[in-house]
């Protein structure tokens, strides 16, 4: 039954066995095409397994247009250095810590340092580990290291 497959999927995730997790997610999807949890698990497992191309193709071939994969899609596009497309995919997203961090990383690669620094300043109160590393990098690159 599908519950056993999810149990197996969960165990692989806990053990960081991401390629196995993808296989089990596919087994779920063969029984329950479009299962939202299975698709999400597959996409995240592929990203964790560093198979960005397949994560993106999984999102794009998803039969569930109601599921919002915009953040995952934007992240994959960022990893592929398709920065303008990544920005487009983020636009539909609610602004939160995750989308702001990704946006700042995209802006950094685009060389838009002032916009990048603005985001880091907004995130300062959020106490994100290692945020200051990226914040300082953007200030140095912008020639604003005295700040």
């Amino acid at each position: 039954p599908i519950e056993d497959l999810f149990d197996s999927l969960n165990k692989h995730i806990q053990r960081s066995e991401f390629e196995q997790a993808v296989k089990v997610a596919d087994q779920v999807l063969s029984i329950a095409p479009g299962d939202e949890d299975a698709i999400r698990c597959k996409v995240v497992a592929l990203i964790r397994a560093d198979d960005i191309d397949k994560a993106l193709s999984t999102i794009q071939s998803s039969q569930r247009p109601t599921v919002d994969f915009s953040f995952f899609k934007a992240y994959c596009l960022y990893r592929q250095n398709k920065l303008d497309e990544a920005v487009q995919s983020l636009k539909s997203q609610e602004r939160n810590i995750a989308t702001m961090l990704l946006e700042s990383q995209i802006l950094y690669r685009l060389g838009k340092m002032d916009a990048c620094i603005d985001i880091y300043q907004k995130l300062q109160k959020s106490k994100i580990e290692s945020l200051e590393i990226n914040s300082v990098a953007s200030l140095i690159t912008a020639g604003r290291s005295s700040e």
Binding site: F6, N10, C41, A98, Q105, S130, I133, N134, A137
Partner: peptide
């Protein structure tokens, strides 16, 4: 240019499967 960490990666999370098992 200085190295920037991929902090967004930490927000790529699995869904909870609690109620699916």
């Amino acid at each position: 240019n200085p190295i920037v960490l991929d902090l967004a990666y930490n927000f790529i999370d699995f869904p909870s499967l609690e109620n699916r098992m």
